[in-house]
């Protein structure tokens, strides 16, 4: 996905669920001048480990630096760069939109078209829940904008490689692992 002339990259990291791990990761991004587009954190399938999904802007070198610097954090167990992989990516958004008896029907139609859900209805507003890729959420938000969006909250992207992830080189990128060696220290055959 291209954004502001830069490639957007999705990186996931399996991290130890310890106090301060988010601060360590955030501090590294800030200090190295990397830009986070979105960050989502939650429990993983393994007790004691959380999984983070980052979306970052930058060229290939920048993303390599991001994964390299992430890998140096002691609490980071494994990093996967999903950029060149077949992935499923989703984001969830809650959108509070102004409503009136006159336009409620039209909004409900839009919600149905997008297979979103209305999760709260008030006298002058309703809350819509939508899950999907960012483009889909952007599209609904654009269509709802004329009615007046009072509040919007987005989770940021979570992403996962399709199919069986185990055994993939890209899913075992951690300092010192073979996958890491091949990935981080790519031999640049140009001019060799």
């Amino acid at each position: 996905m291209v954004y502001n002339g830069h490639q957007q990259h999705t990186i996931t990291a399996l991290v130890q669920d310890k106090p301060g791990v988010l601060a360590r990761v955030a501090s590294m991004f800030r200090r190295r001048g990397f830009n986070i587009v979105s960050l989502a954190v939650g429990n993983s399938e393994q007790p004691g480990l959380s999984r983070m999904t980052f979306v970052v802007n930058g060229d290939r070198d920048t993303v390599d630096q991001v994964t390299g610097q992430l890998g140096k954090l002691i609490d980071v167990v494994r990093i996967s760069d999903l950029s060149d992989q077949e992935t499923v990516a989703r984001e969830l958004a809650l959108i509070k939109v102004e409503t009136s008896p006159a336009n409620r029907g039209e909004i409900v139609q839009l919600v149905n078209l997008f297979r979103a859900a209305i999760v709260d209805v008030g006298a002058k507003s309703m809350v819509i829940e939508i899950t999907g890729e960012e483009d889909k959420i952007n599209a609904l938000a654009n269509l709802l904008a004329p009615f007046g969006i009072k509040e919007m909250m987005r989770t940021g992207r979570v992403a996962m490689v399709r199919g069986q992830a185990e055994g993939r080189v890209s899913d075992s990128v951690g300092i010192g692992r073979r996958g890491d060696i091949m990935d981080r220290a790519r031999v640049n055959y140009e001019g060799v």
């Binding site: 630096q65 060696i181 220290a185 031999v187 640049n188 055959y189």
Partner: peptide
């Protein structure tokens, strides 16, 4: 020059100078 870069820290490889032959 071509560059061989041997380092124990993978984030140093290609950080400032692109190596033709990085060795971790």
């Amino acid at each position: 020059a071509r560059i061989i870069h041997v380092d124990i820290d993978p984030s140093e490889l290609h950080k400032n100078i692109k190596a033709n032959a990085p060795v971790l």
